[in-house]
Design a binder for these strands. Structure first.
Lengths: 195, 195
DNA sequence: ACAGCCATGTAACTTGTTACATGATTTT
DNA sequence: AAAATCATGTAACAAGTTACATGGCTGT
């Protein structure tokens, strides 16, 4: 929902046309998240369908301006006043993958953890390097970009901490691997064994 | 992709039928992530369409067993050997929302941050309470659940750290708010001002 | 003239998700 | 007999994403 809501929030500041919206999103997120132009138009149509924005007539340059409706403004207010509940609905892809992998017999869990830690560590270093080069952060755009980078750095650090933590915990326990077919039919022939 | 890939990986251990797959996913993720049963069947059909699984005949109980194809096994191996690149493609909804909010004139950024910090803090406390109750973590299932909870705790901590960090950074800078319409047409009348 | 960008759109597709229908079986 | 659970499915939708088509204008 972040693209949809962000575009609506920007539009709530005043009418914009497609490419302008894209540039605004780009500016405000420090160009951290690439956004395909086509998605702007899709999203605008969906917002229009939901009564949150209205499409205006094209001006002399052919720019089609879109404006938030009062319903759209209300939705923006609601978005801003309600916190985002992470972990409710949003799945942690990395944790799911590693825990599922850890419970699968015959999987080299250590290799999976190692590959992930290497990649996450490299990424963290990249992010820190990137952060160091924009240390100034004079303009609002630079500040926005820096905040985004910081968010990614904090997330990467948490990821690495969890990787260490999880591997320790797994090492401390015997075989967390789980065989298949613990589920058995209430009645009838026993469930077939894993291959 | 986590549901799709997890189901495929479980199936790679041996043939399963729909409800069994759901139970396996549930078990292996410590019942942290609810999974609608219908989604199992959707996902299986899509995996079949992509040639990664094959549907077997129903047995006497009417259980329809599905099995991974060799392509499916290869895909699982690929999944396990390649790390997940967070931040590439996966958008940070919270960071986007707060940074966009911070760049919008007329928004009470402090209130947005406060609401988020309150919610994130409460969630962190809930998670810590939950972690304390299963301190034992004897069975593999409990261990899996504990690892998931830990992942969420680490993420929530990172979130709170970033919130503090970002608010400090914003406080240290003047008005990071960005007016609309910095984009101007190459030619023609100037772009309309924000409302 | 030609390459490239600005600008608007369209069509298709992915994964995730829910609501619902149906029937068999099991428990109370 | 009624309620709950197991089990398989179907239909629809949301949000994100990409690839492509089209046209106008611009700079070389």
């Amino acid at each position: 929902m972040s693209v949809r809501q962000s575009l609506l929030a920007i539009l709530d500041q005043g009418p914009c046309y497609g490419h302008q919206l894209r540039a605004e999103f780009d500016r405000r997120t420090g160009s951290t998240w690439p956004l395909n132009v086509g998605q702007i138009y899709n999203t605008l149509e969906r917002l229009e369908r939901d009564g949150l924005v209205e499409r205006g007539d094209a001006d002399e340059q052919g720019h089609v301006y879109w404006a938030a409706t009062s319903e759209g403004s209300a939705e923006v207010a609601r978005w801003l006043s309600h916190p985002i509940e992470r972990g409710t609905g949003a799945r942690d892809e990395l944790a799911i993958k590693l825990v599922v992998a850890a419970t699968l017999p015959g999987v080299d869990v250590a290799a999976v953890f190692l590959a992930q830690r290497t990649a996450s560590g490299a990424r963290l270093q990249e992010l820190r390097d990137a952060a160091a080069t924009v240390a100034g952060a004079g303009s609002p755009e630079e500040l926005a970009g820096r905040l985004m980078t910081d968010a990614l750095i904090f997330a990467a650090e948490a990821e690495l901490r969890w990787l260490d933590h999880a591997e320790q915990r797994l090492a401390a326990h015997p075989g967390p691997a789980l065989e298949l077919s613990t589920l058995r039919p209430k009645r009838g022939r026993p469930m077939r064994a894993a291959v």
